[in-house]
Amino acid sequence: MFNYLMLLSMFLLSVSIVISLYRVIRGPSMPDRVLALDSLGYSVIGIVAVLCIMMDSHAYLETILLIGILAFLSTIALCKFIERGVVIERERDH
């Protein structure tokens, strides 16, 4: 019973990933896509956590932290690119 419930929640999280993917592909503007990618990362974190419970092992818990950091950094880099046109600014340029 417990395993079936975990499987159900994994399925629902996959559905929410598909919905976010729709917004990534379709999104009318660039920030829309960035926002959808961000929330897609959070759904992946949830799936990894549920997978840890299902497989009854704590081997994948590092992955949660890693995916979180990657999603946050990519969001910041993309936002800066949208706003300024560059990701890493040099002091010399201005």
Partner: peptide
């Protein structure tokens, strides 16, 4: 307890991704 918490979190994130489709602007 764990099943209730995980399912509640799942439903919350599913509903908010539903909001991605329905809401009008970014």
């Amino acid at each position: 307890i764990v099943a209730v918490m995980v399912l509640a979190g799942t439903v919350l994130s599913l509903l908010s991704s539903l909001g991605f489709i329905r809401l009008p602007d970014i």
